[in-house]
Design a protein around this nucleic acid. Structure first.
Lengths: 278, 278
DNA sequence: CGGTACGTAC
DNA sequence: GTACGTACCG
């Protein structure tokens, strides 16, 4: 028996918006600690990881571990049937082949019930690197989204150059080139708008904007985004251990005392400057 | 060395929106007096002229005359990367093959820098007629845009009939016909909404709505538009000397004391009632 | 200026 | 049907 209740159902809508264009099928792993999902994107280039703590739910019960494989496009369609202010309840029986979603309106006079068929998905093991990142950039998520969108006009890849006092996002293409420089903000600035850089050594890496634009769809989840990177490791090291992590906290925003109930992390390998690729 | 600084960068965004669908490539002529651009539209039917006075900029320096040929679609893409409240700085070196655009955010902690490659464009001489127009109609620009859009539903051409007390815009087509009559407003009305007619003799001419709809994209630049025309000259006279001019002033709107910093003018020959054309 | 909504293009 | 860009509204 599994049951999870989230008063602020709009959080689930935002999570689905943030991953459904990247991953079509995935399994939610449910344990007494919470629900989580890991999956490669369709082109097997990036990796998405969602984690929701059990104590972030308004009610959470998980008698034994479950793996709920499903089509995320279908889940997204169903979740869109909930109003933004609905309470969402996810239910699953042990060993069942479906989950039930309940959408309760605030006045409780209306309840919608949807069922989604589950799928048996090959549970590919996803080795998420347990790396310590030397460079961490925390910045307004809408600014990050805007920068990625703007630079997509210029080229396919963004080059991120980071120093202690600021970070530069650059791109180049047929029509010219562009770059945006952000200075680290004073600590007195309000937290939402702050740009915070934490680093041991300078860094310069390139990433495919196509994926970053997909990641940036998580912007409604959090006012700030955290980019974590490490300078290039020596050639020959496996690429998976040298990635960029784009992380958004999932918070209960409507509450008077907002609390983080989980996170969504995207992992992307840097684009190697290889003249072979067009 | 050329440098022009415009605090209200949104003006440049509006100018590009007003011309990019009509002209793909064009040269900006920069002189100590200001920047200007003249170009025929892609189908060589209409003519666009943009002029920005040097004293309309917040800083302007032009050591020697420059011709900056560029793709306006590319320029428009880059300009879209500026926020509406950014300050835009245009820089060009003498004889360089690129210009630099700087977008400064209001808080100055963010600076974007874009470079656009320049092109060598054939500088076709554009004989802009130095005509005195006998009929001038000044009216709200949004009303003109709406009339052109509405009449496009009816037919391909608008017939403008003007008398001292008012003007009529008419069109006819397969599904029927339509016409809008505007009376000259009392002088007491507020300037933005006023309709002002100045003329020596009555006039009736037709114009292709396709082009007028393109011209009307300059509507965000100015609350009023001026249509200038002359009655038909005798047959046999060259058509270029008998055109309609659609003019929008370019103003610094946000300022407490708004000032005109330039204009955008569109020239279009009347559509001759010729049964040969379909 | 940010968010939502609509319309268009893929 | 989905995703993007544009337009309007708050």
């Amino acid at each position: 028996m599994f049951e999870a209740r989230l008063i602020q159902g709009s959080i689930l809508k935002k999570i689905l918006d943030a991953i459904k264009d990247l991953v079509t099928d995935a399994s939610w792993d449910c344990s007494p600690n919470g629900m989580s999902l890991q999956a490669m994107d369709t082109s097997h280039v990036s990796l998405v990881s969602v984690s929701l703590n059990s104590d972030g739910f308004d009610k959470y019960r998980c008698d034994r571990n479950l793996t709920l494989g499903m089509n995320l496009i279908s889940l997204s369609k169903i979740i869109k049937c909930a109003a933004n202010d609905d309470t969402i309840i996810i239910k699953a029986g042990d060993g069942g082949d479906k989950i039930t979603l309940l959408f309760e309106a605030q006045n409780e006079s209306e309840v919608a019930e949807y069922e989604i068929k589950l799928m048996n998905l090959d549970s590919e093991y996803l080795g998420i690197p347990d790396t310590t990142y030397n460079v961490t950039i925390k910045m307004p998520s809408n600014k990050f989204q805007r920068i990625c969108r703007d630079l997509s006009q210029i080229g396919d890849a963004v080059t991120i150059s980071c120093a202690k006092d600021g970070v530069r996002f650059g791109a180049a293409g047929d029509l010219g080139s562009g770059s945006i420089r952000l200075a680290q903000t004073a600590t007195s600035d309000k937290p939402e708008d702050s740009v915070t850089i934490s680093m041991q050594e300078a860094l310069c890496q390139s990433f495919a904007l196509k994926y970053l634009n997909h990641f940036a769809k998580a912007t409604p989840l959090s006012a700030q985004v955290t980019l974590s990177m490490s300078p290039d490791v020596p050639l020959g090291e496996p690429l998976l251990f040298n990635v960029c992590v784009v992380e958004y906290n999932i918070s209960d925003n409507d509450d008077e005392n907002p609390s983080t109930i989980g996170f969504i992390r995207y992992y992307l390998a840097p684009k190697i400057d290889d003249t072979d690729e067009s």
